[in-house]
Design a protein around this nucleic acid. Structure first.
Lengths: 153, 153
DNA sequence: TATTGTTATACTCTATAACTATA
DNA sequence: TATAGTTATAGAGTATAACAATA
């Protein structure tokens, strides 16, 4: 109530960010840059595995993407056919499948990430080191707090 | 290169935020809270008009939502049938239509916004005033810089 | 009987193409 | 001829339901 930085001022920025993140041609450009055409969910699966740094079960991928199981299964087919991932039976549970990146998949995910990072880096190239650090800290905190509140409700 | 707050650390948070913003049930909850069932794009149209604070042409709404004209037209039908918006011919150009909120539409948009603001406010309720102000400032700057770079490329 | 994943199907959101009316 | 909007259609992304296999 003391100034203009209440939630009301935040919402338009967040809406705009959501738009840029999801509706801009960011992903398409990354795919052009890398030269390996994937659909958006396929790329998300790849990046999810890459960021996890280890093989994941189908259900775990779905949970991290916040989508439902069948959706992941569907895109795993394409990725497997393209030689980017491999499905192996989980030794701990014969029902489950462990999905892992192939060498080609890991390389592709790395190149995509590199392209995207390049853009983000360019966008904040002239920020002070302090602003970057502060933004990183507050953004992380914001996402965590928001998710906690939405889940907990 | 001096610490962990380079773009690489930002990306996972941004991906997560994108997920929360677009794929969580945030919108559905707001609609339940308000009791007026709309689809997501319909609600976005309503909020776009509300945040503009004045009647907008169809093309202008589409531009702000970063979607294509026909998409807006489609949802305007539903909104008009529900009595939430009104389409009037632009006096300056007989080809164009000015879309304006009805009283009911403005009231609904206000209630939705209130519900959403409430959640955001709760999420950052225990932040210091300084952190809120800083986050607001950096977020706004980040979105602007990012958009400028993506457009300019 | 509960859980992991798959198959089949349907729904939501958004785009492209073809058209109408005004400029 | 160019622009604002609409209608009709198609495609991408995701969900629900029914099922199979293992636990």
């Amino acid at each position: 109530m003391s100034d203009g930085l209440d939630p009301a001022a935040l919402v338009p920025h967040l809406m705009q960010l959501g738009t840029v993140l999801n509706r801009s041609r960011l992903v398409e450009r990354a795919m052009e840059a890398v030269g390996l055409p994937l659909d958006r969910p396929g790329l998300t699966v790849l990046l999810t595995l890459r960021m996890a740094g280890k093989p994941l079960r189908v259900g775990e991928i779905a949970a991290r993407m916040q989508v439902v199981g069948p959706h992941v299964t569907r895109h795993l087919h394409d990725l497997e056919r393209a030689g980017l991932v491999r499905r192996v039976v989980d030794p701990d549970d014969q029902r489950a499948r462990l999905v892992e990146l192939t060498d080609a998949g890991a390389a592709a995910a790395g190149r995509y990430l590199e392209a995207i990072l390049g853009w983000f880096g360019d966008a904040i190239a002239d920020w002070s080191e302090e602003d970057r650090a502060t933004f990183g800290r507050l953004l992380s905190r914001f996402v965590d707090d928001l998710q906690a509140h939405l889940v907990g409700e």
